[in-house]
């Protein structure tokens, strides 16, 4: 390296999205990822219902082919139309949340411009595999959703979603007896690979308000508001 260069020349100032132009903290962006059918959209809907009355919030959906998830949220009237944006991912839902986040950033910025008081944006990924994770250029924290029906080996198999997500949600615990899954094993395996990061075992069927996950989200919003970055 030439002597008149130092590493700082190559590194950017902190990502600008974390603060709005006025210096006010922008909305907290939470990524919801996980395999197809694990309950991402159901969780997004539950969080909208539970947190909608408390926070100014919006959702970005990343369906692989249709606007089905966005339509589901609209149909269930958990959020007004102008708080839901669907992005097309060009056959690569994974690319859109990790490698080239442009379309999602556009959607988030559009929602921010439309709702200047926005406090929370949920970015729901298209269903993908266990290696899918969000870029921290797009979200502040991420939740990975798996389900019991996928088998109790999933936490042990790991993958970036399971090991590194800020919150792991194991959904459909009500199905455990039916599919012969051992919730104790899932909890233990998850704790073993997650280095102390939290895991929540939930059943959105039994608790449609997703109370435990909503509490975790509230905590994230609180933590951010007391800690100016």
């Amino acid at each position: 390296m030439p002597p008149d260069h130092n590493l700082d020349d190559y590194v950017d100032a902190p990502a600008p999205h974390r603060h709005s132009p006025e210096g006010r903290p922008g909305p907290l962006r939470i990524g919801l990822g996980g395999p197809v059918g694990s309950g991402k959209t159901a969780l997004a809907a539950a969080l909208c219902r539970t947190l909608g009355p408390e926070y100014d919030l919006a959702v970005v959906t990343n369906d692989i082919y249709t606007t089905e998830d966005a339509d589901f949220l609209r149909r269930n009237a958990v959020l007004p139309d102008d708080r839901i944006e669907a992005v097309q991912t060009g056959c690569c839902p994974h690319t859109a949340i990790r490698d080239d986040i442009t379309a999602n950033l556009d959607a988030v910025e559009l929602l921010e411009a439309r709702h200047p008081g926005l406090e929370l944006v949920l970015v729901e990924s298209g269903g993908d595999n266990l290696t899918a994770s969000f870029s921290y250029g797009l979200v502040d924290v991420q939740v990975f959703v798996i389900d019991v029906a996928g088998g109790d080996k999933v936490p042990r198999k790991g993958g970036p979603g399971v090991t590194a997500a800020d919150l792991l949600v194991v959904n459909k615990t009500d199905l455990a007896p039916l599919v012969g899954a051992d919730l104790g094993v899932m909890r233990r395996d998850a704790d073993a690979v997650r280095g102390g990061r939290p895991t929540l075992l939930v059943s959105l069927r039994e608790d449609p308000s997703a109370a435990a996950v909503a509490d975790w989200v509230r905590e994230q919003i609180r933590a951010r508001s007391v800690q100016p970055a």
Binding site: V87, Q88, T89, G90, C92, T95, A96, D99, D100, I101, T102, A103, D106
Partner: peptide
């Protein structure tokens, strides 16, 4: 690979 959103356009 330049992340400018090109991959979402056909």
């Amino acid at each position: 690979r330049l992340p400018a959103g090109g991959h979402t356009h056909s």
